[in-house]
Amino acid sequence: MADEILEILFHEQQIRSRVGELAREITKDYTGRQLVLVSILRGSVFFATDLARQIDLPLSMDFLSISSYGEDSEGVVRITKDLEENIAGKDVLVIEDIIDTGFTLKYLLRTLGSRNPKSLEVCALLNRRARRIIEIGLKYIGFEIPDKFVVGYGLDYRQRYRNLPYIGVVKPN
């Protein structure tokens, strides 16, 4: 365990088994449909690729990145890397690492929804309900987590810790 990690919330094995369960649910729900996984950069990449490998369906993957408040606090949120694929008429599943306030997700759903997908749902690895301001329905949730600062398995603190195989709580500094 890295020195700065206070406790481990979910071990590698727990994550693997939960991702497998989600993949089976998704496989069941999306059979016979045109599934597009939209992974939101950068936090959800590990989750999205692990999940995709266990979904037993033909699917396509695409990636989207949006600016965050701190980078451009004078402006407004913008897409910094758009999808390569056209999602009109497709069944889109947005893959997110963590849902907090719901601000980012709200913007994403509004933007993607305007492109006329056949369906638009969300699969979030972590749900930190305590911080929610905007209520948005999440079709798939990996784990509910307490109001703590977490890192690992894609989640960072100042771009570090993304590569930890587990999800842990970082020590406050």
Binding site: G70, I98, D100, D147, V151, Y157
Partner: peptide, 24 residues
């Protein structure tokens, strides 16, 4: 405070990524 910390406002430091969560 979580919101302010997450979005790196208030003191203008580099915590903008907050919890990688939405910070990307």
């Amino acid at each position: 405070k979580n919101l302010i910390w997450k979005y790196g406002i208030g003191n203008g430091d580099e915590e903008s990524n907050g919890n990688g969560g939405s910070g990307k």
